[in-house]
Amino acid sequence: MVKEIEKAGLPVVHVASILPISKTVGANRIVPGKAIPFPLGNPKVSKEEEKKLRKKIVEKSLEALSTDIEDQTVFKW
């Protein structure tokens, strides 16, 4: 899906918990998710902490979208 959307002409950042799959499906900009059932959260910490984490991941995704790349790149947070 990532690839097809990018083919249509849009830069896509893929927030994905399983990096090898993201790489295999051909995502170019990749941001690791926290875990499969909650890629952008963490139920083990307080609501505030969790939102902070989510914001960090989304901000990293925005950074990925505004970075020029040559090849598949993982943006770690």
Binding site: M1, A8, L10, V13, H14, V15, A16, S17
Partner: peptide
Amino acid sequence: NAKAFGKAIGEELVKDGVQAVILTST
């Protein structure tokens, strides 16, 4: 199927003037 969805979604987004996409996967 995934390819077909991506293509259809991508085309619509371009048509609607979207400039960047965040795709999340579990």
